[in-house]
Design a protein around this nucleic acid. Structure first.
Lengths: 334, 334
DNA sequence: CTGAAAGCGCTAACAT
DNA sequence: ATGTTAGCGCTTTCAG
């Protein structure tokens, strides 16, 4: 069943070279020869051996997606788009989970699957920009999210500061004045949460509202349970709040759940907004206001980046690729 | 940076054979030699070449997860467990999406990534059992879900009939009598929906309740929007309903959303239950009653299956592997 | 236009 | 205990 080039060549009465040419459609082959070879190919059900091609050509056709967890809806949706885009470019995508563990991030950065990967798309959680730059593996790397890597590494981002400012501005525009922020992650080197916090503060300051530390609730992770816990913390502390900006939709869904548990009506008593535009948010009760990053564009930008690095010249200098986002106002903020 | 065995051997003043032995920890090597080789290995930063190993040994260390879409929460959660379990077994997992397209399912079944995969875990959607059996690729295959493949293919399932019966029984036990079923998929060869429907009907019949065709609402897909549309259809048709059993949590979340849109209170006016126990369901408002398949056990069973097939003997005969499930009663059914 | 053959890096059978 | 070498399947240089 697994025929190789030599067997096909024998059957067609030609040399391996000619069969290879037919298979790759590369050089000139006489039409009659081509037909004969093609028949042999079909009859034997020839399928090129990826390992041999890889060994010979140095390209595996594999790219790795390295993320904290694939079960998280945001990464799940992104992975879907990345897989689609990878396929269009002839790549197969493998998935590696880090769980946000710095050792595991290091390990994968140093070589996924025995270096058998043409490129990496990574969302680091724990590793610093300096750590990220230091790696023995030569495979091109593109980061997802704000790493502030001094422009030495490709990364794809949205303008988190602007987006957070817009969203907070929207909450203010609906008349809210005591707006909490759930989601700062001071323990992480990943700069995303910091930027969203900055945008939030900017909006408050622009509106002449005070920045109250009691309204900024840090979280360890971005799971729904963390959002719920943060919300309960806020409510049980008796802090006056009329809106919550959560730094992810997952946090917001948790917050929504906790708010309902406290008998609060959303948005009448409390406005809740998230970030990421995951599908759950659209069907939450009430539907969640959020910032929608253009996920397809993120996937495209990341893979275009890798593709550019794999061209002969190595492509342009590493850059920060900013992708569009949009404010999605839904029922949860009235 | 990318040193090979020969370079290491030269540096250590030994043969490639010895270096290979040290690397794989295989045969007996004199301690002093071993140490010298190890130093050379470290100094040159040697890392084995996966392509060469694969070509030589016939094992790529790759397994493929072939599913309709990774962005779906159920598959996302499952993929997370599969990636974890794969890693424990020394495999790297790649993901291929079919979108439920029969041509694409066929194509992937015939060989993922140029056959460079040691095994496949697949959730077929459109291909019939007969189609599934006919394939040129020799890589072991294990199916997720009910394929009724005449015992000729390995597949991992939960007892869908029993689970659906239990869940419907629970709805009946809470006093509901007009129980709709959202989710039959008569157009699919995948038998999962059919089994859940069977379990639902069994429970009704056991309780002496009539099976009303108007209460069985088929869906094209399992997205939240399909659940919402089905729920709206049911409500606008004026059918009397006091409970809905949705064949997936996604459908149920959509139904919940639509019910809220119609001003119905859940569970007071309407009980809603799902299937799959995705995280969204736990944090929905109200929290969703559901059937929780043991996803970790599913991942383990699938990979154990592949591992068994890859042993010398080819492992035991193909089988249907039944994994445990549990009824999770939450607020949505009172 | 087609054939012969080198060689990618590794493992393992065969030597010593 | 260690050295030598064939060969996995493919692409591509060199001949013709």
């Amino acid at each position: 069943m697994a025929a190789n080039l030599r067997q096909v060549a024998e059957r067609a009465g030609v040399s391996v070279r000619t069969v290879s040419n037919v298979v790759s459609g590369f050089a000139l082959v006489a039409p009659e020869t081509r037909e004969r070879v093609q028949r042999a190919l079909d009859e034997l059900g020839y399928r090129p051996n990826a390992a041999a091609r890889h060994l010979r050509g140095g390209r595996s056709g594999l790219i790795a997606l390295v993320i904290p967890e694939i079960a998280s809806p945001y990464f799940g949706e992104l992975a879907g788009h990345l897989a689609d885009e990878a396929e269009k470019r002839g790549w197969t995508m493998l998935v590696q989970q880090t769980g946000g563990d710095p050792r595991r991030e290091r390990e994968l950065l140093d070589g996924v699957h025995g270096q058998a990967v043409d490129g990496l798309v990574m969302s680091p959680w724990a590793l610093s920009p300096a750590d990220l730059r230091r790696r023995p593996d030569a495979a091109p790397l593109v980061l997802l999210g704000e790493q502030d890597a001094d422009g030495l590494l490709d990364h794809v981002v949205i303008d988190n500061v602007a987006a957070a400012r817009q969203l907070t501005g929207h909450l203010i525009a609906t008349g809210r004045t005591k707006i909490a922020a759930i989601g700062p992650q001071p323990h992480l080197t990943n700069g995303t949460a910091a930027q969203r916090l900055a945008g939030y503060r900017q909006a408050l300051s622009e509106a002449g509202l005070p920045a109250d530390p009691a309204l900024e609730v840090p979280v360890a992770h971005l799971h729904r349970s963390d959002g719920a816990a943060a919300m309960r913390e806020l409510l049980s502390a008796g802090t006056a709040v009329d809106a919550v900006f959560c730094f992810s939709d997952q946090l917001a869904l948790g917050a929504l759940h906790a708010a309902a548990g406290h008998g609060l009506r959303v948005p009448a008593d409390l406005a809740v907004a998230g970030f990421d535009d995951i599908e759950d948010g659209r069907f939450a009760t009430p539907a969640l206001t959020t910032v929608a990053p253009d996920k397809v564009a993120i996937a495209r930008a990341a893979l275009d980046c890798l593709a550019a690095r794999l061209t002969a010249g190595g492509g342009p200098a590493p850059a920060r690729h900013v992708v569009a986002h949009q404010l999605e106002v839904r029922a949860s903020t009235g």
